[in-house]
Structure formats: structure tokens, C-alpha cells
Design a protein around this nucleic acid. Sequence first.
DNA 1: CTGAAAGCGCTTACAG
DNA 2: CTGAAAGCGCTTACAG
Lengths: 337, 337
Amino acid sequence: MAGTARPVTLRFIADSLGLHVSTVSRVLNGAAHDGARAASGDTAERIRELAAELGYRPNPHATSLRTERSNLIGVLVPRLSDLVLATVYEGIEEAATDHGLSAFVTNTRDDPETQRKRTKMVLDRRVDGLIFGDAHADGRFLDEIATAGTPFVLVNRRAGDHPAITCDDYLGGRLVAEHLLELGHEDVAVIAGEPYASTAIDRAAGFVDRYREAGVTIPAHRIVHSRFDTAGGRQAAEQILRDRRPSAIFAVNDFAAIGAAGSARDHGLRLGADIAMVGFNDTPLAAELPIPLTTVHSPMREMGRRAAESLVRLLGGEPVESERLRPTLMVRASTSP
Amino acid sequence: MAGTARPVTLRFIADSLGLHVSTVSRVLNGAAHDGARAASGDTAERIRELAAELGYRPNPHATSLRTERSNLIGVLVPRLSDLVLATVYEGIEEAATDHGLSAFVTNTRDDPETQRKRTKMVLDRRVDGLIFGDAHADGRFLDEIATAGTPFVLVNRRAGDHPAITCDDYLGGRLVAEHLLELGHEDVAVIAGEPYASTAIDRAAGFVDRYREAGVTIPAHRIVHSRFDTAGGRQAAEQILRDRRPSAIFAVNDFAAIGAAGSARDHGLRLGADIAMVGFNDTPLAAELPIPLTTVHSPMREMGRRAAESLVRLLGGEPVESERLRPTLMVRASTSP
DNA sequence: CTGAAAGCGCTTACAG
DNA sequence: CTGAAAGCGCTTACAG
């Protein structure tokens, strides 16, 4: 009840029961029905009972110091205010919890300087492993981390040969192209996202390649890089719509697509009727917009779960391989005439 | 270079220099130019040099175990995939970092059972303090935490008399009412959010009170509770638009407003022209929508910063008081005829 | 100015 | 079956 109640320790339990701390530790740590019994059934029961009654919780600092294991994993993301990463993180947290690990997440703003600093901070906390959601395609920084020895996996974005759990973004881009080709769109533009993100690169590449296979070469000026947020999509669209307008735009993520839709409207274009728009990710918003957005569903939460599970395997000394989860095209009003 | 490089310890530095660990500790901990010198200038310099060269980073588990201070703060939010909380959290992280603290955030889904579990987990990690972004108005759970002794503040939502950094939601609701009254709207509806969140309660109350002061009583069936996401807004709007439609809708947050806008469109209503719509929070999306959304700007990131700073003060033994940050009305096309 | 000791709360071989 | 010891890497009075 006192404001400064000291947590109960192993020693306190041991003394209360007239036992040695090592006995108590053995009982409380050993699996409930261990082969090599840690104490007599009677003693064990008394210990467990008192521990439960007192609400004993081991001091994780002491445990970590002793075992050199923190049961903490560090997660680095560009920004949690990006719904995609926030959702991926929810999956990570769920799976980590299932495995008795706590996740420790931090924003790096996709800025190399901040990435370094925050990674260092997380490593200083002695996490057991890392999940990077902010990999840059050049992957220089990750190579350094790899040599430093702390196990890690990438999620959402891939880089180099590091194990990565991603959506099959290239396939996603192809699906969009196929859909637009079926509708007869030949003059199309791409809002291509950040040039350092594999998500953006792969989605655009899949799209462009599929068009090329259909005999249509998308000219360079029809491919415009952009930030991933709504304002970025709007800016890119302004540039695209300045000249002769395309009949369809593929934005490599939903928020950019929404911004682009705003720009299209400013130009007097009706979404679906005058210009087709496609996004990527199928964020919950996409289906609920006044004019619902055609987009590619990517399993964000599932990616997070699998990334955490891969890291768990890595921590257990098992090898892990990259995975590409399957995307699905969601056709909605923004591409129906 | 080896994959299993052991971190440098105080002992390693001490031995390398033929000194005692306590000397090294004193030098590395004391403020650079301490009054009571920790060692001779020469010794101190040699220590600092080697520490820098070896990249010494204190083992936080050892430090925490010894000092009973983790320099960690726990942050509980309903869900990081809610942009509002994600943005608040960015502010918290920034300010915490400025004060040498690390923030540890976790999702509680606004579900009491999960709130308990995750709070327990965070407390088990021996955080120095807590920030709750998921307070429920009844505040029962928080009262328990208060007696347990770990300092905490609330952010975004308030409850009971616990110190809380919030937006002045009541005032925000009033601002919306004034705007709609000026435009001549007398038959209005409220998409009122979750009944346990002070944000929702206060915004709706400010709105209803201001209307009453203007001589307009908003009937109970015009006030519909809802989830805070887009789908929730759509559902609530469906219910509202089923009968004789109001001329304006105030949704207590932007995402619900966007969902409601979708529903309005399904009913053949043009936003702004046929029905006015107002949201709350001024998320970056609001200004970029095809029909930009009138909303109330709330200083989300700033709330987070201040909450972290309040907690820092609390940890320093200073008293803290609740703060209500000022909201600003942002008038856009969704309320212009 | 520097060293030596004690101790934070655990875990883990090792005895008996 | 249980205890005793050592030690993880620190910090902090206390000596000298």
C-alpha cells in the first residue's frame, strides 16, 4: 500500500520459508514438471504458493545481468505515424509476447543519422536481437550491424542478402499493371515513392516490367518519386498532371494515392470516371473512402508476426530465410469507369 | 569483428590501465568538470580516452540493478495504428530522449484485460514511470496503479484527478458548434466516439453545451456513439442518415469523419454542398482529402512532449499539474456550401 | 587522489 | 533434496 513498496525478492521468499535463495530460484525457474526436480514436491509447493501470494516478479535487470539475455528485441521503424509500420509493429508485438519477449520500438525517420543513433541506443540497452523496418536499399549500415554480431531480420523492406520478411512487392506491381491493362489503360504514370525503399523500387519495377511485356514502355517522365505520405502523393500528382494527363496513376502506397486523388480533383477530374487511381497496402481507409480505392492488399500484421518469429528462430541458433508474402489485388471504384 | 565480441566492461578498462574499477567508474560517471574531482586530471584523461577508443557503453542491467533506476519509461496506448496516438508517442519519444530516458511503448487495444496485462508487463520491466494514453473515464484501474507507487501521467485522455496532459477538448467541441451555428446549421448530429474516452465525452459535451446556449437542444437520437476508426464513423453515419438527415455532422475525430463522408456520398449527398462535415485532430490527411475536411487542430506531438516532461518532473520529486492545450478550428471545404 | 569492499538480485555448476 | 559459493557489471560510501 505504501507508495514506495519494495518489490519482493528471491531472498525475501527464501528467508520467509527458511530456505536458501538457490532453492527458491531453482523451483521458480524450472519448468513446473521438470525431470530433474528442483526440490521436494512439498518444498516446491510452499515456494510457489508464497511467490504467488506475494506476487513475486523477478528483477529483470538481475536476471539479464546474470544470464546475458535481456529477452528484449529492438524494433526500428521510419515512423510509427505511418500506418503501415504501426500495423507491422502490432504483429511483431503480438508474436514477441507469445514467445516471452518484449519489443522495444523506436522511430528513425528514415534518416541515416537518426538510424545510427537509435540503433546504438537500442544496442546499448543490450537487446537480444533487432528487427529493422527502415532498411535502405544500399544496406551499408546493415552490413556493419551484421559484423557486430547481434542477430537481426528485416521487415517490410529488404536490402542485400539480409534475411527479410516482405510482401512480394514486385508481384504486387505486376498485378496492378495487369488490372490496368485489362481496362485498356496504355498511358499511365507511377508515383514511385522513395528511391531508397525496396517496397517502392519493387512495386514500380513489377508494374513497369509487366507493361513492357505487354508492349508498352512507360517513359521516364511518367515515373515520379515522392514521399510516402499524402502530401507527397499530391505533389507528385501535380507534376504528373501538369502536362498531358495519363488515364491512370499507380501510387506505390495508399496515402500517396489519396493525396494524388486530391490533386486530380483539383484538376476537375472525377476519380474512376476521368482518371483511374490505384494504391498499395489496402489500409483500412482505402475501402472506406468516399470513392473507394483500388489497391493491393499486403499482409502487414502477418509480416510483423513472421518477422518476430524468424528472429526468435535466429536467437535459437536456427538459420532463417527470407520470405515474400503474397499480395492480393482489391478492385474498387477508383478504377471503374 | 568476431560475431560474438563481448562488450567492453569497466573492469577491462581498469585492468588495461592498472587502475581500480571504482576509479574508472567515478571518472566516467562524474560530470566532466566535477567539483569533487574523481581522479587526477591525467588519470581521468587516460580513462576517458581509452573508454572512447574502445567504445565503452555501460551495461544498463548492472547500472539499473545497482541504482534501482532503469531510465526507462513505459507508455501504454490503445493502438499505435491510430495515427493520433502514434503522433503523440513521437512527441513522447523525442522529449524522453532529450532527458536521457528511453521510452517503451505497448498496445492495449483499449481493452481492460489487455491494459492490466501490459501494464503489469511494463511494471515488471521496472520502468521508472508510466504514461497512459488509454485512460478510461471511470479510472478504477488507474487508482490501483496510483497506490502501487510508480509515478505516472496521462496523455490525450484524462480520468479522475490524475495529472493529465490533454487538448482542451471541451473548448474544441464549442469551436465546432460556433462555426456550424454561424453557418446556420440547426439540425445537427454528433458521431460521438467511445463512451469511455474523455476526448469523445468532452468534445461532444462542448458541442452540445454551446448549441444549448444558442437555444438549440440536440435530441438524444442525434448523438451516436462509435468506434474511432473509419468503419466506425461509417456505421454511425448510416444510422444517422437513415431518418430525416441533419444538415451537418460533427464527428469527434477525423477518421470517423472520413468514414461518415463515405456514407454520405453513398446517400447521394455532396460534402459541403448537401451536408457539412467536421472532424477533430487535424491529422495530415484532413487537408489533403479530395474534399478537404474542416476539423479542429489538436497539438498531438506537443501533448506527447509535455507529458514526457511532466513525468520527468514527477520522477524528480516535483509536483505536476494537468494541462489543457489549446485547440484551433481549421475551416475547409467540407463546411462550405 | 585512489583503492578495497560491499552489495544490488539473480543463476548455475558444484558439494554434500 | 538442499545449501553455499561465485560471479554477472556496476556504484557508492569509506579508508588511507
